[in-house]
Design a protein around this nucleic acid. Structure first.
Lengths: 216, 216
DNA sequence: GTCTATAAAAGGATAGAC
DNA sequence: GTCTATCCTTTTATAGAC
């Protein structure tokens, strides 16, 4: 597997790109859609090319082989997902408000169809593509955990919550909130939870957590 | 896909089986190992046969096609997993003890290599094989949730915990406990959590839950 | 870079002989 | 039921002409 790691420029505008770079971006975008829809083995390189135009030669020149293309689309999708999470600012806000804002953001991000499809894809290919699994984990769950953990750290320092491991609490809260919905969506048993279902889960989780860790 | 649904007799002893039934069981057992190791597309029917002996004709006669074989091994594995969960008796026990026993059992069952491999397999093939996804969900998580939910229902009736939706609480507790470990194992980033890691997660989760729902 | 053609291999499904 | 052989399709990967 020859990985061609030159995908750090997808945030530049189209006008900054050379024709080659635009082509490369177009291939990655088309391949990402196809992989998300059909899984690794469900995608043929012919299908990628027939969607984006051009020749398979170009594809092999840029990405080496199918695994190289796969690595490129995982990197791309992970950055897409992480962006909204990095915008969430929690430190300084009261407990209930911080937990509520976290819940809204994470429901939206983690249950988005593209996130779920990427999740399914990466789990399925974890053995074949361990690097992709690593990239995904460092992007989605780790970024999430860290954001909330920073808040808990601050909150225990200023006495809003009792002392306790902020990372542990962060994982427990986010998992309690999302894991059940996530699994049911991954299995195709639930399209997307309704707002009422989300609210019930959120309220119950926050209620337990408030009593569980708030300083009295 | 022709599904031949005759796999309700794997609990009978070997001596009760006809030669055909033994053969069928042997194929299912071998195929299960291979699918768990290599995923759906990673398994060839030749590989199944070369492991168990016999002819591909027999395989096609019993299972119709590859999808039929897949359905059979998922049913088989789900029943394997569920068995230890149905033995867990919680009603009547004090809160901390019930939560602790639940944690031990579910760590053992959900993080077992075969459970994780099945989980990965079923998620990967959820689109191709929705029935398998359904079977898996009804077996593993649903059985788990119900067991603990029954306890919470009883516990609120006798006044051990505050009133509240037992199903919701059950999901929140089990997800908080296992989701993080589960994901890291599925992605191949964690072999299996150490006893210390399990204890830390368990203690923190139980601590939050005790304060969160125990009647004062 | 693009288009068409093709080599090379794999794997699902089937058939004949026993 | 078993064993061997084979059809047929799909798909990765490469090559030649422009």
């Amino acid at each position: 597997m020859t990985v061609h790691d030159r995908d750090n420029n997808h945030l530049t505008t189209n006008s900054d790109m050379t024709a080659q770079e635009r082509k490369r971006e177009a291939i990655v975008a088309a391949a990402a859609d196809l992989f998300l829809d059909s899984g690794y083995s469900g995608v043929t390189l012919d299908a990628v090319i027939s969607r984006v135009g051009g020749s398979k030669r170009t594809l092999y020149a840029y990405f080496g082989d199918k695994d190289g293309l796969f690595a490129a689309i995982v990197n791309r999708l992970c950055e897409e997902i992480v962006t909204p999470l990095t915008r969430l600012v929690l430190v300084g806000r009261p407990l209930r408000e911080a937990l509520g804002a976290t819940a809204q953001t994470f429901f939206d991000v983690l249950l988005a169809p593209r996130t779920l499809a990427l999740h399914r894809l990466v789990v399925a290919e974890a053995t074949r593509a361990p690097e992709a699994a690593r990239t995904f984990f460092l992007a989605a769950p780790t970024t999430s955990y860290r954001c909330l953990a920073e808040y808990f750290k601050w909150a225990s320092e200023v006495g809003i919550v009792t002392p306790g491991d902020p990372q542990q609490r962060s994982r427990i809260f986010l998992d309690a909130l999302t894991a059940d919905f996530q699994l049911r969506c991954l299995l195709g048993l639930l399209d997307s939870p309704t707002q009422m279902e989300r609210d019930e889960r959120m309220n119950e989780t926050i209620a337990i957590f408030m009593k569980g860790i708030a300083a009295s």
